[in-house]
Amino acid sequence: MNLSIEQRDTATGPVLHLVGDLDYEQAPRLRRHLDTLVLRVGHCLLMDLSGLEFCDSSGITALLTAHGQARTAGAAFALAAVPPRTLRLLSIVGLDQVLTIRPHTDAPAR
């Protein structure tokens, strides 16, 4: 399934709503989108994963790229509404300890 990315700019920073698969074939779409992203110091780049169908190691890499990009820009980074399967994957690879994960896009960090 193709990945579609919908960007919403809020007062606290951009929210990327990912729908579809974030895998080896589709991850480059996210990377290309990140290239166009403007982040300000103090903003938060929020990835809304509520529509994520599948995420593999290439998807994790793309999320880490976004994470790195936010850090470089002096912005925060968070994942929201992570599907259980992806959450399990994040926990296996230890990223649940490193990345900020929120239950919803409008909820504060847990």
Partner: peptide, 14 residues
């Protein structure tokens, strides 16, 4: 072996 982080992601990893 819970909590072990992906290798190469952060400069200091648990």
């Amino acid at each position: 072996t819970p909590g072990g982080l992906l290798v190469g992601v952060l400069p200091e990893a648990p």
